[in-house]
Write a protein that binds this DNA or RNA. Sequence first.
DNA 1: ATATATGCAAAGCTTTTGCCCTTTC
DNA 2: GAAAGGGCAAAAGCTTTGCATATAT
Lengths: 143, 143
Amino acid sequence: MKEKAPRHRSTVQRRIILEELQRTRDHPTADELFQRVRERLPNISLGTVYRNLDVLVRTHLARRIDGVGGQCRFDGDLRRHYHIRCVCCGRVDDLTWMDTGVFDAAGVKAPGYEVIGFRLEFEGICPRCKRDADGTETPPTAH
Amino acid sequence: MKEKAPRHRSTVQRRIILEELQRTRDHPTADELFQRVRERLPNISLGTVYRNLDVLVRTHLARRIDGVGGQCRFDGDLRRHYHIRCVCCGRVDDLTWMDTGVFDAAGVKAPGYEVIGFRLEFEGICPRCKRDADGTETPPTAH
DNA sequence: ATATATGCAAAGCTTTTGCCCTTTC
DNA sequence: GAAAGGGCAAAAGCTTTGCATATAT
């Protein structure tokens, strides 16, 4: 019943995409990553980046951070940590200092569900947006 | 500097959209809500639903639940509660029994940030998906 | 050899926006 | 009667997909 999983091959594109994702700490969107990878592989296409991010997430080499307004971000850091997102600009920073076992999904019992994890994200206003703020802009989460 | 906020008017569409959102407990997408509202207001347009959901979220009469893959869900229940999302079908259920102060955003100090809240969401497999599962499908979060 | 991956472009979906008319205050 | 809102359709933005070619094993 279960269709057999394809054995993924090691391609230049995949390796460099992962490298770039791991090199940075700023949780790029697919397009941002595409721009960076493109500097090393000028012919790579955005579709390839999406396909590979997909593979990387499925093989647990990267994590997807679901975003506001339909844009995802990706994280190459597999260590347990939390995120804080700026509601103004959408930027996502790490909260590694909280690297504790505050929450344990195993302890959660949702009736009927098989719980497999949880997602915790703080929301705030990042330093740059605080500086720029004139109170006029409407934050993305509020849309 | 701050542009003055428009004073919102009470329209039939807005009232019914909010009513339908509050009537249900299943966190509909904009389109799902549109279908339900349409039964009462056959001429309403999807754009109006989006515009009103926007207003309702901004005026804190509804909450937006950011979704996987760019589709948002909305919640008309303003009481403090958590969510559990099925990674197979995307369905979101409430976790009201956890209605405790487990987390307090005020206690979180993210360097440089002004913390305004947090988002906690459990992930799991809902009863229906567990029953249907043949292990073949790839969950949405894994994409 | 053959399954897997890439590039390119087109298609798909959700959400936003412009325009002009209608409704609310 | 101004200002806010609605309907409709087009546009926008992100992501996925089809197809022919190239590459990894």
